[in-house]
Design a protein around this nucleic acid. Structure first.
Length: 288
DNA sequence: AAACAAACCTGTGCGC
DNA sequence: TGCGCACAGGTTTGTT
């Protein structure tokens, strides 16, 4: 479900409540959600410690702790992080509950809800580094992430250097989290549409002008989507930590609009094709 | 190197 | 109404 704009919206919506809060107790109702370690290790890593940051890299949420450990949360397809009054009824599929204690405030729950259980929560030591790869032992993939368009200095030169001289299709490259971190299946289709480039165009065949267009569109769309609070689709699964829906889905030009008239050129009809197990939406007339 | 398929799970929406 | 199938925002792993 959530891509960079959704994860960023979640991050912003829980930052005030989480940063500075101490963990009172932890409940794990589903071991799979903490599969990288264990319920005991999650509790031991959290209880008594205070969150000092609520960061994001790509689609990864990173909460630094006073112990110098970090809690990583990945929502994958169906995960949600919700702030709730501890007396509020729990949503179905609430797998992890972290009780936050804040001086001068009443306690609050940070709840990890995840029907499909692809998501996960793990506490790890970011300084426990594998000297061979320079990546954290427990969560190496965060160290493999490419440029984050919002967190990093996402200049055109950096973008071009990250893409390199490959022959892969434009969509595959933009979805590659080790190139750019945070773009997923909805936003990649929207970015390429705005850039008027076909999903399977080899990046090696793109002109500097077209690369600039992709770079500009990426920044534009991701920022607009964050400003809109992300995209809440028909299934209404995605909401921020306070339960608020996003409204960027009303701005989608191609995603889930197959069969409809292209809003950009007014001539093409949006097509949906399937490849590598994912759906791709584009206008065959204005995307070349 | 790059493209693809399958795997991990559950819920929903569709056609029959 | 009910059943079976296709499909869903992500990522990893293994195979062509």
């Amino acid at each position: 479900m959530p891509e960079l704009p959704e994860v960023e919206t979640v991050r912003k919506s829980l930052e005030t409540a989480v940063v500075g809060a101490r963990v009172g107790h932890v409940e794990v109702g589903r071991e799979r959600s903490v599969r990288r370690t264990s319920p005991a290790m999650l509790s031991a890593g959290l209880i008594g410690n205070t969150f000092t940051t609520a960061r994001r890299r790509g689609k990864y949420l990173l909460f630094d702790l006073s112990s110098r450990d970090t809690m990583m949360v990945h929502l994958r397809m169906s995960g949600r992080l919700l702030l709730a009054d501890p007396t509020d009824a729990r949503e179905p599929h609430t797998h992890v509950v972290i009780r936050l204690v804040r001086s001068g405030h009443s306690d609050i729950d940070l709840r990890f809800v995840d029907p499909r259980t692809f998501g996960e929560v793990v506490v790890y030591d970011p300084n426990d580094i594998d000297p061979n790869t320079n990546e954290a032992f427990l969560v190496p993939e965060v160290g493999r992430l490419g440029i984050d368009p919002l967190v990093d200095n996402f200049t055109f030169e950096e973008f071009r250097a990250a893409i390199g001289v490959r022959h892969r299709g434009a969509k595959a490259v933009l979805l590659d989290q080790s190139v750019i971190a945070g773009i997923g299946n909805i936003y990649v289709d929207e970015i390429l549409h705005r850039s008027r480039i076909r999903w399977n165009r080899p990046v090696s065949s793109l002109s500097i002008k077209q690369l600039r267009l992709i770079h500009d569109s990426t920044i534009l769309i991701l920022n607009e989507a964050v400003a809109a609070g992300g995209s809440t689709l028909k299934d209404m699964q995605y909401v921020d930590a306070l339960g608020r829906e996003g409204i960027f889905q009303t701005e989608h030009k191609v995603y889930a609009r197959q069969g409809e008239r292209c809003l950009s050129c007014a001539r093409g009809v949006i097509r949906r094709v399937t490849g590598a197990g994912r759906s791709t939406h584009f206008c065959p007339v204005c995307q070349r």
